[in-house]
């Protein structure tokens, strides 16, 4: 399933298109981080870095991708739908009553969503527990936990960061989608002490790399590096809120928001996609 950088960039574009369509249909949700995470998850699911079987989401041999920043789940829904884990047509059901696509991630809904999240600062601990369990069973499966940068403000996140190296969890990769924004403003304004973040992970004994998380070449290189780590590995992934959509990029107001018909047309244009006939 390994693909060229250009192929992965095209997959990322298609995921962004599907994400914007999904959020346009729901008239609510969190576009900013749903779009900032896309290059990383595109590389994981389409670049051969995450082992999974789209016909068998609960395959015992799969690697697990945990989305701790559960508000970014529309991006993940779009990604795993395109990966074949559930029908793309269901994306229109985001946040609607009676559908599988909850407003924040819910374990098993649809199959392929590994954990429930939404209340921040919990995913890394769960990922550690899974990584420990896999080690106890002598299994080679790996665990990837994506978090937001705002989420690094939760004390419980640091409990988990401190713990992981104690057990040499070389099957655990933490990815911080550092898009620089949170609901009420830029993270650098809300909590300036967050930086430097990579140095903090290093100080807590993690092997760490810092990349431009919207540059597919750098993303692929970081994931390849993570595969050879001797312990828990952290990727500080600097991204742009709302990446790919001109009026959202870098604007914290798009942490959440409504994509109107007019804004939808602009977004499709930005993403090089024809506006679907209504």
């Amino acid at each position: 399933m390994s693909r060229s950088i250009e192929d992965l960039e095209e997959m990322a574009r298609r995921i962004r298109v599907a994400t914007v369509k999904e959020l346009h249909a729901s008239r609510s949700g969190h576009p900013g981080s749903s779009l900032s995470i896309v290059d990383m998850i595109a590389a994981l699911y389409f670049g051969g870095f995450l082992k999974y079987d789209p016909r068998n989401p609960l395959w015992e041999e799969r690697d697990l991708f945990l989305l701790s920043n559960g508000h970014a789940v529309p991006g993940l829904y779009a990604c795993i739908a395109l990966a074949g884990l559930f029908p793309v047509e269901e994306l229109d059901g985001l946040r609607k009553f009676g559908t599988q696509l909850q407003g924040h991630a819910k374990r098993g809904s649809p199959p392929g969503i590994e954990i429930s999240s939404g209340s921040l600062g919990q995913g890394l601990s769960v990922g550690i527990g899974i990584a420990l369990g896999l080690k106890l069973e002598g299994k080679p499966n790996r665990v990837f936990v994506m978090m937001s940068d705002g989420e690094q403000q939760e004390g419980s996140t640091w409990e988990a960061i401190m713990f992981a190296p104690k057990h040499g969890l070389d099957n655990l990769v933490a990815i911080v989608d550092k898009n620089g924004n949170q609901i009420n403003g830029p993270t650098s304004v809300i909590m300036p002490g967050l930086d430097p973040l990579a140095a903090k992970y290093e100080a807590f004994h993690w092997e760490t790399t810092e990349i431009n998380g919207n540059d597919m070449g750098e993303v692929v290189e970081a994931l390849a590096q993570a595969a050879t780590a001797k312990g828990p590995f952290a990727i500080i992934s600097n991204t742009v809120t709302g990446k790919g959509v001109s009026y959202m990029e870098g604007d914290y107001h798009w942490h959440h928001g409504v994509i109107t018909d007019e804004l939808f047309a602009t977004a499709m244009d930005d993403l090089g996609e024809p506006v679907p006939a209504r």
Partner: peptide, 8 residues
């Protein structure tokens, strides 16, 4: 959280 992961 670790317990939840171990249970999974």
């Amino acid at each position: 959280g670790i317990c939840a992961g171990l249970a999974i």
